[in-house]
């Protein structure tokens, strides 16, 4: 059996505010690029599942052919192999096109792929749609916000999912696409041995020949791209001789702002 983790390379969240509109538009982002933090949970779960099930783990990412840092991070954590999908195969496309490209890349890994794991969203794109699209394109079961994988047996998988105010246990037939919640595990740091392995690894790049996508016009496209206005925040420190006076001042201020 194979377990696939979908990995995206995104700007370091600490540096996200530095990304300019022009950079975002052209895709030539100058900031430090790292593994999308949500995808670290998917990579960790893939490693653990592969161990548990005696399966092999594969990381798949779509991006520019030179953008292998995120995949190398996954390899350094312990994912066994990695594949990059050249984003040119889905040029001018939308999430639906990206999902098609990834679904094809997953199929190319062979019939023994039974589980595909993904983070719940990417910190740059923020759509949270890719894994949904991939499940659709593959025609597989879909589970979102999974907090624990309880059992994989007899062609079925049992998981725990969390939702507002509750937990549920669900079972679906394999193969399955799963988006994981951050409660599912604690992603490990890469090991030094892993770092060395990752740097020696050959990462195959799948291009238009391997992943042909008929150029259907994208359903969604960017009409406009801008940064939100800087919000001006005023800080008011409530003065008072005693805690009671300060509290009364705070209540007055909150009432005046119609917060309470």
């Amino acid at each position: 059996m194979k377990v696939v983790a979908l990995i995206k390379q995104t700007p370091d969240t600490a540096e996200l505010p530095k990304v300019s509109v022009d950079e975002a538009r052209s895709g030539q982002i100058q900031t430090t690029m790292v593994i999308n933090p949500w995808d670290e949970f998917a990579a960790e779960e893939a490693i653990q599942l592969a161990d548990r099930l005696g399966a092999t783990s594969v990381a798949i990412s779509m991006g520019r052919p030179d953008q292998t840092d995120a995949l190398k991070h996954a390899l350094a954590m312990g994912i066994q192999s990695a594949v990059l999908v050249d984003e040119a195969v889905a040029a001018e496309g939308d999430e639906w096109t990206a999902a098609e490209a990834l679904a094809q890349a997953i199929r190319l890994q062979g019939d023994d792929v039974q589980i595909v794991l993904a983070g719940k969203m990417s910190v740059d794109g923020n759509s949270g749609l890719i894994h949904v699209g991939v499940a659709c394109k593959l025609g597989w079961s879909l589970l979102v916000n999974v907090t624990r994988i309880a059992e994989v047996a007899d062609g079925r998988i049992t998981v725990e999912r969390s939702f507002e105010g509750g937990q549920e246990v669900v079972q679906v037939p394999l193969p399955v696409v799963i988006s994981v919640a951050k409660e599912i595990n604690e992603p490990r740091y890469p090991s030094f041995m892993g770092i060395r392995k990752a740097n020696r690894a050959q990462i195959p790049v799948l291009g238009k020949d391997e992943i042909p996508i008929s150029p259907a016009p994208p359903r969604a496209r960017w009409e406009n791209l801008r940064k939100p206005e800087q919000r001006t925040v005023q800080v008011k420190i409530i003065q008072g001789a005693t805690p009671q006076e300060k509290a009364a001042g705070l209540v007055d201020a909150l009432l005046a702002e119609k917060v309470i």
Binding site: V34, K72, H73, A76, Y189, P190, F192, I195, R196, A198, N199
Partner: peptide, 9 residues
């Protein structure tokens, strides 16, 4: 590149 990964770690 290995050094860069060590730094990130």
């Amino acid at each position: 590149e290995e050094h860069e990964m060590v730094r990130r770690l």
